[in-house]
Amino acid sequence: MAKKVIVQANLNDNDTEFLSEPRQSLLEVLRETLALTGTKEGCNDGNCGACTVMVDGRIVNSCLMLAVEAEGKKITTIEGIAQADKLHPLQQSFLEEAALQCGICTPGFIVAAKGLLDREPKADEHRVRHWLAGNLCRCTGYDKIIRAVLKAEKEL
C-alpha cells in the first residue's frame, strides 16, 4: 500500500485536511474518510452522476477524480448546498414537486442542477434536460425533476 498523502482543500466552506491513499477516489474519501455519505455511489465509473460534486464551481463525478487531485480546490457536496435554516430553492422545489422517489440520485441531481443554475439561471427545458443527461434516475422518468429545476429558476 502506498503511503497516504496529506490533502488540503476547502470542503463546503471549511478549510480541511485529510489523508488519502493515492489510489482512492474523491468519492471514496468523501464517504469513507470524511463521513460525507450524502454523495452517493451508483456505478463508480462515471455513468450515473449520483456522486456529482462541485469542484471550483464545475460539476464533477467524484468517482472519476482522485482525492489527491482535490489539493487546493474548493469542493461543494450536497451537505454544503443548504443554509443552516433554509433549504436551497432547488431542494425546496424537489420537495414540493415530488421530484424524488427513492432519493438515491437526488443529491447528484441537486448538485448538478445547481451547477447549471449558477451559470445559466434562465435555462429552458431542453437545456435542463441536456445538462442533466449525465445523471441517471430510474424512478421518476425525469418529468418531475425537470419541472422542479425550472421552478427553482423562478425562485432564485
Binding site: 450524502g38 457536496t77 451537505e79 424537489f94 420537495l95 438515491i104 437526488t106
Partner: peptide, 11 residues
C-alpha cells in the same frame, strides 16, 4: 423528503 434532498438520509 428533507433528509433526502440534503444528503442526510442513510442508505
Amino acid at each position: 423528503g428533507l433528509e433526502k434532498v440534503t444528503g442526510k438520509a442513510k442508505y
